[in-house]
Amino acid sequence: MSEDFESFFLENEEEGEGQDISQSEKEALLESLKVKSNQIFIPFDGLVKEVVHHVKQNYDFIISVNGNKGDGKSTLAYQFAKKADKHFNLARNFIYNGSDYSEFEGKIKNLPQYTPVVVDEAIESLYSQEWNTTLQRNLSKLFTTSRKQNKIVLLCMPFFTDLNAGFRNKLVDLWVQVLGRGVAVVFRRDENIFNADKWNFEFMQKLLSKRGKAGSRSRFLTTNILQNINYLRWNYPNFVGVTTFEQLSEEEEKNYLNFVNDTGKFEFDLYDGSVKTKELKQSLGRAVAWLYKSGADVKKLSEKLNLSVYSVRGLLKREGVDLRRKGKLEVWERAENYMKGGLE
């Protein structure tokens, strides 16, 4: 049910990449928001200072940063961490491949208080359809018991609903939805103790159904952005406001890409329409689908093929594979034995 609410923000992930918002468009949007929407604009520096102030009251703070590929999730998290930590650097503040629990534990427990930790590609470790893995159980326990560490954790992944519902409702404090490069909408968790749905997905689903938005895959930005933001402001209880963030400098972009190449998995460009890439996607997609149907799960495919979880899921979806089933890992032993036999 909540997927329709999220489609209010996101287009189908197979239809396109991140969308640029020009500086003039951004300025016009912000001016409209300030004039017509009674100051719902949140300065990015102010947002960072507010979160840092909160953790200094002996709390931790978890932010879910969501949006389409290329929209600027990692950029927003990078800028947030840089402003929140005067000792910021990628090796200190970033986790790219979130499948190593010891790295999580080390940063949460060993970095100084109030340090921001960015989990880029958080779907690697916190994907809702793999909620019962040992890694997720350990992470949930770590985040639940780490308040005294007073860390700020930013989780970057395409969809907010990719997080397990229990994790979202109990541990996530802010949901930041990136609309395009440089602009994001901010929501906070509902603290009403009588409300089990802390993000009011069912409530908004009913409203959007009446408004004719339910099931629509049209992108939030391609419709009237000011009208939609005002609609959320007056109807969605979790709405906080709109903020903007700067792009990375050329040097920062280069350093980030080097960091990803050194520590992360390859992310397949699902949107490259060239003939060679299309043929490669088809061949790789068929192979990945065969392995998945033979029993391998998404995480194991990601690990063995050195592809991001996002890329594996995209390839499987293109092959029409149902991702709701759980796989068995012993397929790799069968595949490896087959390969050895074929080479002998």
Rank of each mutant, 00 (worst) to 15 (best):
Y96I: 14
I42E: 03
G106L: 08
S308V: 03
Y101N: 03
I21F: 01
E15D: 14
L163F: 07
N93F: 07
K276S: 09
M339N: 14
V288G: 05
L155E: 04
E31W: 12
E15C: 10
S140G: 09
G327N: 10
R189T: 03
E103L: 12
G212W: 04
K317T: 10
A91F: 13
L248N: 06
Q79I: 05
W199L: 08
F245V: 02
S249R: 00
S37L: 09
E27F: 08
N110I: 05
N224K: 13
F143S: 08
N132Y: 12
A165L: 12
L329C: 00
D262W: 07
K56A: 11
L47H: 06
I21A: 00
C156A: 04
A91N: 14
K300Y: 05
E191G: 09
D71M: 13
E13P: 13
Q177V: 14
L323D: 07
S125Y: 05
F143W: 08
K148D: 06
V242E: 03
S102D: 10
S99Q: 15
K36H: 12
R181G: 06
G166P: 03
F201A: 00
R334D: 12
Y292Q: 05
V321R: 04
E3S: 14
V309P: 00
A184L: 10
Q113T: 09
Q23W: 02
R181I: 00
A184F: 08
S311E: 00
G72D: 05
R324L: 10
S146G: 01
Q136F: 07
E251R: 15
L30Y: 13
A335I: 10
Q177F: 12
F80W: 06
D4P: 04
D272V: 12
L30W: 01
P237Q: 06
G18F: 10
T115S: 09
K304C: 08
E303R: 07
N235R: 08
S22M: 04
Q149N: 02
M339E: 14
R147W: 06
F268Y: 15
F143K: 05
Y127R: 04
T263D: 06
K254Y: 09
S99I: 11
K34V: 07
Y310A: 04
D4S: 15
G18T: 13
Y236N: 14
S22I: 02
N230K: 05
Y114G: 00
D197A: 07
V309F: 04
D272N: 15
G70E: 12
Q136M: 13
V176R: 06
S37C: 11
S294N: 11
Q177T: 15
E252F: 04
E3H: 13
D297L: 05
Q113G: 06
E333D: 12
N337I: 11
Y231R: 00
K148P: 00
S209N: 08
V176I: 15
L270T: 04
L207Y: 04
L323I: 12
K86R: 15
N255A: 11
G215S: 09
M157G: 05
G215K: 14
L221D: 03
K141H: 02
R324C: 08
S102K: 11
